[in-house]
């Protein structure tokens, strides 16, 4: 960790609407740092999802488009196909990507679209008010699983990185987290790798980031970090699931 710490240029100097302790802010900053380090701000287009990060377009200092729920990978496909010189990334949550947008992400990944997806997995719908997501843990209480997720009724949580890594085409699939400083360096490395592969013209890259949602989990930010570490990380194991040279 360096001794100097400042807001990256690619991050707008504004307050976000995110709840206290929400890890979106950290992930935004890491993306912005990588964009600064690769010096691609002037040719980057981000795609905001529907969900808590829908207003992400206000928090970066480069071009942005805003998608419908789950459709960001299709939009990124459209942009990247007609303007391959642009750096394109989607920023999606787990309701957006793993539920309503599962078709779009699977097909974009499988076609090997040359964009990057930042997939924020906090095991719950945020913006709509804490409903059950495809990534919600067994027995996890949400507003639409008040007795806890019943896996007999709705199945087990989807492991998106493992699922997408089963496809032959994608270049890079990794899962990291930002819940503690010791993980953040690896998360940033993964984001930087994903963007670098895109810059090199390699096909689809995705970084899943295990995150917290103190508000909808009904916990303090500190307790959320502990819960994520104890409950999410054993199930959503960190690591590289696919690299351009073979499995991670």
């Amino acid at each position: 960790m360096g001794k100097i710490f400042q807001k990256p240029e690619a991050l707008a100097d504004v307050d976000t609407h995110y709840c206290p302790g929400c890890t979106h802010g950290i992930i935004h900053r890491l993306v912005a740092e990588v964009i600064d380090e690769l010096d691609v701000r002037g040719r980057t287009v981000g795609i905001a999802p529907v969900g808590c990060a829908v207003l992400a377009y206000n928090y970066f200092t480069f071009d942005f488009q805003e998608a419908a729920h789950g459709r960001a990978p299709a939009m990124a496909t459209g942009i990247k196909r007609v303007r391959p010189d642009l750096m394109v990334f989607t920023y999606q949550g787990d309701g957006d990507l793993a539920s309503i947008g599962m078709s779009e992400i699977v097909h974009a990944a499988n076609r090997g679209e040359k964009f990057t997806t930042i997939f924020v997995n906090n095991a719950v719908y945020g913006m709509t008010g804490g409903q059950m997501a495809p990534t919600t843990m067994p027995d996890q209480i949400t507003t639409t699983s008040p007795a806890g997720r019943d896996t007999d009724e709705v199945g087990m949580p989807i492991k998106v990185s493992e699922l997408l890594a089963a496809l032959q085409t994608p270049a890079y699939i990794a899962r990291q987290t930002v819940i503690r400083a010791k993980y953040i360096r690896k998360a940033k490395q993964a984001i930087k790798k994903a963007f670098t592969y895109q810059l090199e013209g390699k096909c689809f890259s995705l970084v899943e980031i295990v995150s917290t949602c103190p508000t909808n989990w009904g916990m303090t930010p500190i307790d959320s970090i502990k819960w994520a570490e104890d409950t999410l990380l054993p199930y959503y194991q960190l690591g590289e699931y696919k690299t351009p040279n073979g499995a991670g």
Partner: peptide
């Protein structure tokens, strides 16, 4: 600063 979700902490020379 690394953990701050709101970039509210700055360290400078």
């Amino acid at each position: 600063a690394t953990m701050c979700p709101d970039v509210a902490i700055t360290i400078r020379e």
